[in-house]
């Protein structure tokens, strides 16, 4: 399971990663559209640098969650979590419902709103272009200060804790992405609070997909149960009506919904 560790204290905000991402994924020039958000991500920008006061720069990209919400909600399975850690997207399967964009706790996926044939766009960790050739993603390769590095997720977590332990006054004692929403492949260590990378509420450690799984597991039982209940009810009521001839129904209409 691979991952990326970004150390915001090392980032100088040069945006080489953004340019490298554009080049390797053959993304066109972006212009500010009505539908863009102010974090810099868009259908043509799969990673961006968010500038913060005090000369702080934070790279924003897909977090490649270990249990991704987008993968769990896609009705056609266009998004998949690969063994390498990357969450990848198959545009040929996608039908454009944009449920992934609604579900992502980090608000990462973006849409080709201006295209007649639009696709969902997000970082795919250079899966086809580099990861499958045993190369690291373009962004981590070009980073001049090694602020964002690629490696085994476990190794990266160890490295992150090592850096924090070595320089406790330099960092906040937290590795973002180690536990939140069940863990992410893209990790951050920082000296500023990174909660602006989400919608602002604390995410908690519960993986997001588990929130629907209870309801989804109930589906077959609900179907069989409801069908059985209805069949049984109609049989019983039919019998009762037969028994008391003449079959004039005098019950109040309110009874019909009592079972729900």
């Amino acid at each position: 399971m691979k991952g990326i560790l970004t150390d915001t204290t090392l980032c100088i905000g040069c945006r080489e990663c953004v340019i490298a991402c554009k080049q390797i994924n053959k993304l066109d020039d972006d212009i500010p559209h009505r539908w863009n958000l102010d974090d810099g991500l868009s259908g043509l920008n799969w990673t961006s640098i968010v500038d913060k006061p005090g000369d702080r720069h934070v790279r924003k990209q897909c977090r490649h969650c270990l249990e991704p919400a987008c993968v769990s909600v896609c009705p056609v399975g266009a998004l998949t979590k690969t063994d390498s850690g990357a969450v990848i997207y198959d545009g040929h399967v996608c039908m454009g419902c944009r449920y992934c964009m609604m579900a992502c706790p980090y608000g990462i996926p973006r849409y080709d709103w201006d295209q007649q044939v639009p696709y969902v766009r997000k970082c795919i960790l250079c899966y086809e272009t580099r990861l499958q050739k045993n190369q690291q993603p373009a962004c981590t390769e070009v980073c001049p200060t090694k602020a964002t590095i690629f490696g085994d997720r476990d190794e990266l977590i160890k490295e992150a804790h090592r850096r924090i332990k070595a320089n406790p006054e330099r960092y906040i004692d937290k590795v973002w992405g180690e536990h939140e929403v069940g863990g992410t492949s893209v990790l951050y260590i920082s000296d500023i609070d990174l909660s602006f990378l989400t919608y602002g509420q604390p995410l908690g450690e519960r993986p997001v997909p588990t929130r629907t799984s209870t309801a989804m597991h109930a589906v077959p039982f609900a179907f069989v149960g409801m069908g059985g209940l209805m069949a049984g009810l109609q049989w019983i009521i039919g019998r009762r009506n037969e028994n008391k001839q003449p079959p004039k129904e005098l019950t109040d209409a309110s009874e019909e919904t009592k079972d729900e």
Partner: peptide
């Protein structure tokens, strides 16, 4: 009208993801 790629709406029949509530609704 809402789907970005409405000509792929039938994909729900052949590509399955039973974890998705939308799959079930569909």
């Amino acid at each position: 009208f809402d789907l970005g790629l409405p000509w792929n709406i039938w994909h729900m029949i052949i590509y399955w993801n039973p974890h998705s509530p939308l799959f079930e609704v569909g």
